[in-house]
């Protein structure tokens, strides 16, 4: 694997004041695969993504993008280095389109900034791949439909041909009747462009359908990580198991017995000692309150941070 095909985050720590939002997380993004990132409020999943995008200061650790560590770069260097390599789309991507700029300009702007030529043919290709008509370029964001605006936001993220795309809750607020359409588009783009995607979502069923790999975060730490299929089939971490059991299923035959966790996610500013999940864990032992477990191998495609993983 060449440097260009991977983003390696190692031991990332991000602090916001006294709050440690990400407390030492390591994650690989590989071109051509989709990695899901799940976790509840306060898990640090969005902060982790923002750190990879250079959008939030990193306290310690490293993020190596195409062979260079973001931490060692200056801000202007990062602004030149990252956009052609990693892009991000946000919740309600359509809202991120500036209302006073025509779609054409919106798409050409990044190309010009990064000195890329033949704008028009690139934009034409991209719009075609997204199933958008070329005459959209003459319109303003308010003149197009919500669905089109969502696609335009993706087009803008992809116009520099990045290898990696970070999608933070891209389907939040979408009705299920149109969600499938959007996800199909994402997966076809991922295949044709060989994108490495980080897909952050709270909808586990969507994550199961759309990702190859999965990382589960709890209170700033990755507690389980591996092949999506393997984790959904046999979660090792008690938190993952509870999270998976919490998703509702229409089909009664498919319903798993629900594991109801006690209490709320503990405070980020004063996380519990030892394993951060032990205060809510149905399997907790005295040791869990003392030692913090490290990620260790379950099998070739699956790692878990738990002293007493589910066998």
């Amino acid at each position: 694997m060449t440097d260009a095909q991977v983003i390696k985050a190692r031991g990332l720590v991000v602090r916001h004041g006294l709050v440690v939002a990400v407390a030492g997380a390591s994650l690989d993004l590989v071109a051509g695969t989709t990695t899901g990132l799940v976790g509840e409020s306060g898990s640090g999943k969005t902060t982790l993504a923002r750190a990879i995008m250079g959008l939030t200061p990193i306290k310690s650790g490293s993020v190596v993008v195409d062979g260079r560590d973001l931490v060692t770069m200056t801000a202007p260097e990062r602004r030149r280095w990252l956009p052609p390599r990693v892009q991000m789309i946000f919740q309600d991507p359509a809202a991120s389109l500036s209302p006073r700029v025509r779609i054409g300009q919106l798409l050409a702007e990044p190309l010009r900034v990064h000195g890329m030529l033949d704008e028009t043919s690139r934009i034409r290709q991209l719009l075609e791949a997204l199933g958008l008509p070329f005459d959209l370029t003459g319109k303003y964001p308010h003149q197009i439909s919500g669905g089109q605006a969502r696609r335009v936001a993706i087009a803008r993220a992809l116009v520099l041909h990045p290898r990696f795309l970070i999608a933070d809750e891209p389907t939040a607020g979408l009705d299920v009747s149109v969600q499938g359409d959007f996800l199909n588009l994402m997966s076809s783009l991922q295949k044709t462009l060989g994108l490495g995607t980080l897909f952050i979502s709270h909808n586990l069923n969507v994550v199961a359908r759309t990702t190859n790999r999965l990382a589960v975060m709890y209170l700033g730490k990755i507690v389980e990580e591996g092949a999506t299929r393997s984790i959904f089939a046999k979660p090792s971490h008690p938190y993952t198991a509870a999270l998976l059991s919490a998703t509702s299923e229409i089909d009664p035959l498919r319903r798993k017995p629900r594991i109801i966790l006690k209490g709320d996610v503990a405070s980020q500013s004063g996380p519990p000692s030892g394993c951060r999940f032990h205060t809510r864990c149905p399997r907790a032992m005295p040791r869990c309150g003392r030692d913090a477990p490290e990620l260790s191998t379950v099998d070739a495609v699956h790692r878990v941070a738990c002293h007493f993983p589910i066998a």
Partner: peptide
């Protein structure tokens, strides 16, 4: 029927396209 079909299921990891309801 369409609404139920649109709902993604966790054990369905086929590569088939997901269902949606065209139009609005």
């Amino acid at each position: 029927r369409a609404l139920i079909a649109c709902e993604p299921r966790s054990d369905d990891q086929s590569d088939e396209a997901m269902v949606s309801i065209p139009g609005g």
